[in-house]
Amino acid sequence: MKTALIALTTATVMGTMTASAAVADLDSDGDGVVSFTEMLAVYPTMTEEGFAAVDTNGDGVVDEEELTAATEGGLIPEA
């Protein structure tokens, strides 16, 4: 039981660090979020419709939470 809890905690922390690293890798202007232009620079086949599907709150940018959900949901490849 204790081992499972440690594994779950580690996976959660690693997932958060991975999302942060992914945003940092995509975020060329350093504002902490990813715009369509920044996403397009790394994923040239990304469409505006695809970006809108990733940007679940519709604010025009993708944050860590949205990027994690999109990656886990298969909307974009893992970084």
Rank of each mutant, 00 (worst) to 15 (best):
V33F: 08
A53T: 05
D27N: 06
G73E: 13
V23D: 01
A22E: 06
N57V: 10
T18K: 09
L75W: 04
V62K: 00
A41R: 14
G30Y: 06
A53V: 15
T10A: 10
A70T: 02
P44K: 00
A41I: 07
E72R: 13
L40W: 07
L67W: 03
A4R: 11
A41D: 09
G58Q: 13
L67C: 06
A70Y: 05
T71I: 11
E78R: 10
A24D: 02
L40F: 13
D63R: 13
A11C: 12
A7C: 10
T12Y: 07
F51H: 01
M14D: 06
D29W: 09
V33H: 13
T9F: 04
K2D: 07
G32Q: 13
K2E: 07
A24G: 02
G74C: 07
M39D: 02
I76R: 01
L8F: 12
S20D: 06
E38F: 00
A69I: 00
T56A: 10
L75Q: 09
L67P: 04
T18G: 04
A11S: 13
T16E: 04
E72H: 14
P77T: 09
T56D: 00
G74R: 00
T47M: 13
K2F: 06
V54D: 04
I6E: 05
M17L: 15
G30S: 11
A52P: 05
T47L: 11
V61Y: 05
S20I: 07
E72S: 14
E72Q: 07
D59M: 14
I76V: 07
V62A: 03
M39V: 08
L67M: 15
T9K: 06
F36S: 01
V54R: 01
D25I: 02
I6Q: 05
N57A: 08
L40H: 15
T3L: 12
F51K: 00
M46P: 04
D59G: 04
S35Y: 13
